[in-house]
Design a protein around this nucleic acid. Sequence first.
DNA 1: CTTAGGAATGATAATCATTATCATAACGGG
DNA 2: CCCGTTATGATAATGATTATCATTCCTAAG
Lengths: 129, 129
Amino acid sequence: MTQVHCTRAQTAVLQLLRQQREPISAQALYTLIKQQQRIGLATVYRALDALKRMGRVQHRVTLTGETLYNAVEQDRHYMTCLDCGQSFPLNTCPLKGLASSLQHSSSFTIYYHTLEFFGLCEPCSVQGG
Amino acid sequence: MTQVHCTRAQTAVLQLLRQQREPISAQALYTLIKQQQRIGLATVYRALDALKRMGRVQHRVTLTGETLYNAVEQDRHYMTCLDCGQSFPLNTCPLKGLASSLQHSSSFTIYYHTLEFFGLCEPCSVQGG
DNA sequence: CTTAGGAATGATAATCATTATCATAACGGG
DNA sequence: CCCGTTATGATAATGATTATCATTCCTAAG
Ligand SMILES: [Mn+2]
Ligand SMILES: [Mn+2]
Ligand SMILES: [Zn+2]
Ligand SMILES: [Zn+2]
């Protein structure tokens, strides 16, 4: 049977994620947790994957290929510059209040969504042309 | 100065992308183009990156870490199962008609957006619990 | 037409985040 | 306390993407 309780690693990961203001990578998370308890990098990845399937943690992938994680409670989104890679947070989720769109299919249980805008920031837009 | 014309590779990539019904990976694109002309894998990646910065091609990253590309004209989005990895296309873009939200910052030029829902599909939801 | 500088290309090696392995440790019911 | 099951940590392997670098292609000046 699938586990009933969160494992030690899952608990540590989820607690730390909830303290973060911004999404964080698995490796950075690993470094943080190691300061408190003995843990392996693989275990961090396993915990993140499990928490994701439980709908408690969500992920997004940066332009550099890193996957960042955050607690699902945080509904943050960004505009990311394709040139310099900088990400600018949005004030609010554009999907807020779109309950209609969220229930496209009753046969699919939605845990979270990712939404990101890509383009050029002011400085890069000027020079890059 | 930055190039004025599309390179041979960029032309080939963009043309092929426009023929695809679904987003496609760089490697798959490489295989397709090779059937028509001599080309290197690195060049495909370079062309995709350039087209992305021009706002002509957009990308998304799958759960397996593959990056898929498609022409920006195609405004497709998906619901993806965190368990089996299957992606189910949405009929329409939930952001359609949200021009207000799209102009958060006049200092950022938006080329495209990614929006994806994650959760569990029917079958996986039943068994996985 | 010829030439020189810069951009594009292809083959290949290197990178690096993530996964797979596997032996060991922790857990939990009986 | 005992045994089968699950979790863990150390480490090797994977694989998509990047970095290199020598070569080819373009283009505009001479
Ligand atoms: Mn949101
Ligand atoms: Mn859309
Ligand atoms: Zn920028
Ligand atoms: Zn599924």
